[in-house]
């Protein structure tokens, strides 16, 4: 496979996509897990399917449609959550199902043979194009810049939003920027892991890393490494078989999560023995 990697452009694209996805997913995943935004991310990801459908219907790149719908979903959920007294879960569920419904509707209205949407739903790292890669790189640079430039503000905000509000910081700005970051991350991940499995790649590596370290920046590093290992395993299996990348990534992620959980239990058990 290593020889093929040097030879074929689609494999080089896939490898670069794996790197970008694991860096972005690893870092943003920790934020999502700590801020308890997993379901929100799921809602944004599924709403983006409406954009994929619109792309096919109107004849533009489906990923651009996903990008537009993700941003609209993130801001829409944020605004409605802030202005209404309704449950956050219900608002997310509405966007979630409405996005999927719109996607099905738009694809149904598309003339000719129905398009192959499975790579958007379940991910196919081997089908990542140069255009996808350029878009992913631009979004990754925006996401990482926003996180690292304002790292201390994010840390305080993620730990205790109420406190930053009392300090008269513009918490609304931080909140909406965070939602936009989630939307951008979803777009970066869609081609690799698919709309349906995005939340797995964002939450599992971050949760697994929480068993290994108590430091925020180290959690991000571990989460990136785990993501890369998962995506690479998906890439290898997809290359040799015809199994969906997303499915392999999720299997690998869940297995490693269980292993880190068992490892943390073992450490705890040893500490308890020492204490006795």
């Amino acid at each position: 496979m290593f020889k093929a990697l040097l030879e074929y452009e689609f494999l080089q694209n896939a490898f670069l996509a794996a790197m970008i996805t694991s860096i972005v997913g690893g870092i943003v995943g920790v934020i999502i897990v700590e801020k308890k935004l997993v379901m929100m991310t799921g809602g944004i990801a599924h709403t983006s399917y409406g954009g994929v459908g619109l792309g096919y219907l109107l004849g533009f790149e489906p990923i651009i449609g996903a990008f537009m719908f993700s941003i609209m979903a993130a801001l829409g959920i944020g605004v409605i959550k802030n202005k209404s007294t309704g449950s956050k879960d219900i608002i997310i569920a509405m966007f979630w199902s409405l996005g999927m419904a719109l996607g099905i509707l738009f694809i149904g209205l598309t003339p000719g043979y129905p398009p192959m949407v499975s790579s958007y739903l379940f991910g196919n790292i081997l089908s990542v194009t140069r255009f996808d890669l350029i878009l992913m790189s631009i979004l990754a640079v925006i996401i990482l810049t926003l996180i690292f430039v304002f790292y201390q503000d994010w840390k305080a905000h993620l730990f205790d939003q109420q406190f930053t509000q009392i300090m008269r910081k513009k918490t609304n700005v931080l909140e909406y920027v965070l939602l936009i970051l989630l939307a951008l991350t979803v777009v970066v991940l869609i081609r690799v892991v698919g709309i349906i499995l995005v939340i797995a790649l964002l939450s599992v590596p971050a949760s697994a890393s929480s068993y290994l370290t108590g430091k925020l920046h180290l959690r991000m590093v571990y989460s990136m490494i785990f993501s890369f290992v998962f995506i690479l395993s998906g890439l290898v299996v997809s290359y040799y078989t015809d199994i969906s990348t997303g499915a392999v990534i999720v299997f690998a992620a869940v297995i490693l999560y269980l292993l880190t959980w068992l490892y943390s239990r073992r450490l705890l058990y040893k500490e308890n023995l020492k204490g006795e």
């Binding site: 700590e34 430039v149 304002f150 790292y151 201390q152 503000d153 840390k155 305080a156 993620l158 730990f159 205790d160 406190f163 930053t164 300090m167 008269r168 910081k169 513009k170 700005v173 931080l174 929480s210 370290t213 108590g214 430091k215 925020l216 959690r219």
Partner: peptide, 23 residues
């Protein structure tokens, strides 16, 4: 359970109200 130290939490009380880059 947030991954942060005691010093970091208390330091956050010294932040400015503006959102500052590279603070």
């Amino acid at each position: 359970m947030f991954p942060i130290t005691v010093e970091e939490v208390v330091l956050s009380g010294r932040m400015s109200k503006e959102i500052r880059p590279f603070f």
